[in-house]
Write a protein that binds this DNA or RNA. Structure first.
Lengths: 330, 330
DNA sequence: TTGTAAGCGTTATCAT
DNA sequence: ATGATAACGCTTACAA
């Protein structure tokens, strides 16, 4: 095994104490600027790098942020999560903190994996934890973070006390979409998407000025195939449908695809609006209009919540707005 | 701060030595099955979790794998990388290893970030390193891994000794695409894409049975906008173009978009093939044909190389094949 | 501002 | 199979 130079050897060689060396690298330590410079230069020269595990042990902090998110499968990329991760990294820039990613796998293996994660959290591994709501395990993770007294921040709605949470106003976004449909004289709206998202339907109904139960709703999964299938089903009984809101962009693209095949011209005959404004959907033909959620802002807001906790400041719930982006599909 | 129960306290409470407790959790230790069970049960009960930093320090291993990849910008998701990360996580399943993600940021901040990464690697942080080739910094990272004697694996072509490398045969994929164009009687091929990828052009030329210099080549970036702009430029001088290979799917989608606008019907008038088989492009209208690279296999192969190094086994270069997937665009 | 030395919570070696 | 104890390499009172 490769032997790194230790703080003891290094400090001996340059003729100072280990404490001084340590101070030179910690931002807080009281040390003369001159000594610090000298030590940093010597460290470069001799190739000294503090052992990160020893530092973590002694200082009770690890510099790693753990990012937990529901995973729809190891063969199924999730654009939503990917963008959040991007936002996290952007916020982490220069902070010296490192990001660890932890997908919560789907059914078969989730228990084993969760055990590994639990050990990791409860052993004091991460310095902060970011959890994307959406699976039952997300809730357990929050409990672990609390139990271990590690700063955490939740992205999404979880039905728990909200101060450590970054949420977004899906309902308002859906309402904007509905109002747009009304304004552009659409008469026969429909909604495609899973039933988890009560908020979106509520907002849609509100913008339409009808009770939520009256929304023509095709539930189902969040995939391209689901979107296409749901649309085919929809027009069997409701061929008059002339505008469509979908719970995410992947569904919307699937539905548009089925719509073309059924001879619906977009946007003339059918207006379509998606949700989340996934990067690829703006390249679609026609470019998809979408309720945009700034997912990167989601990530950086969550990191801010963590930073506030590190600094012992009061943490405020963060809120990210949704905006309707009109492109070509409506 | 929250005080966790330490191995000392725990072992005292249950009446064994710390060594025995440690052995109960390490797979290697010689310990009776009965004692192990007892200790694990007690640990559950009393909530004992080994401090991960102390373990890492004492055992000289950290259980974290670091994943470094070129990032095209904090506002620009990279589908390619995302899929590799997915493959990595799939391979990591149940291994108890954790994944850390490290984007190599574009220009302005890369030096500062690289310094942080260097410290991390040279301080003995990660137990293994996976590097996606593609930026100049990638090469530096390999040198750091070597210097620190940490097992590593490179994904992509880097022009260094190849045994710790997972590569893929882009050239063969491009050649397949060319042969398909020839077989389907296309006469006027063109290639859109950055100049980094000599391999793809070479393969394309080979399949076309012409020298590489004779390939009609529109260089440029890897984005949607680049694809669209390149196509517009292309047809100014070469309106007869009837088939198109693009360096990736995003470019291809951009080019298709520009093609529609210019009145080209796909695939009748213009055949298009992309590269990488990004998830979204199969949803496009028409569904994009693409040279498919199993990116998840890339990830798991890289992890395998790491595992081989952990076990002291000889490491063989890994190779992932490319296959042409015909859909609707050609 | 700098040095001394006592932790930090494990693992691993050497006895028993 | 189990126990005692010396590392592991750093940070941080406390002292100077």
């Amino acid at each position: 095994m490769f032997k790194r130079i230790t703080i003891k050897e290094f400090s001996d060689q340059i003729g100072v104490s280990t404490a001084t060396v340590s101070r030179a690298f910690s931002s807080s330590g009281r040390i003369s600027e001159k000594t610090r410079r000298m030590i940093i230069a010597k460290a470069q020269e001799l190739g000294y790098h503090a052992n990160i595990h020893a530092s973590s042990l002694a200082a009770h902090k690890s510099n790693v942020i753990s990012f937990f998110y529901p995973s729809i499968g190891y063969d199924q990329p999730d654009y939503f999560i990917m963008e959040i991760q991007l936002g996290l990294h952007a916020a982490l820039q220069q902070s010296g903190l490192l990001l660890q990613t932890h997908p919560l796998p789907p059914a078969p293996h989730q228990q084993a994996t969760l055990t590994i994660y639990r050990d990791y959290i409860l052993s004091g591994g991460p310095q902060g934890i970011i959890i994307v709501a959406g699976s039952p395990e997300s809730v357990e993770l929050v409990e672990m973070a609390r139990a271990a007294q590690i700063p955490y921040s939740v992205i999404g709605h979880m039905g728990i006390e909200p101060q450590y949470t970054v949420t977004f106003d899906n309902a308002a976004g859906a309402e904007q979409a509905a109002r747009y449909f009304v304004k552009t004289k659409r008469r026969h709206p429909a909604y495609i998407g899973g039933q988890l998202d009560k908020r979106k339907i509520r907002g849609f109904a509100q913008g339409l000025n009808i009770p939520p139960e009256q929304v023509l709703h095709l539930p189902g999964g969040y995939t391209f195939a689901h979107g296409a299938a749901a649309f085919r089903e929809l027009i069997q009984n409701h061929p008059e449908t002339d505008c469509l809101l979908c719970a995410n962009d992947v569904i919307a693209v699937g539905a548009m695809r089925a719509a073309f095949e059924a001879g619906y011209v977009i946007p003339e005959r059918l207006a379509v609006i998606g949700f989340d404004d996934a990067r690829f959907s703006r390249f679609y033909q026609p470019a998809l209009s979408s309720v945009s959620l700034n997912m990167q802002q989601l990530g950086s807001s969550a990191m801010n919540q963590l930073f506030q906790q590190f600094d012992g400041k009061e943490v405020k719930a963060e809120f990210v707005t949704c905006d309707l982006i009109i492109r070509e599909s409506c």
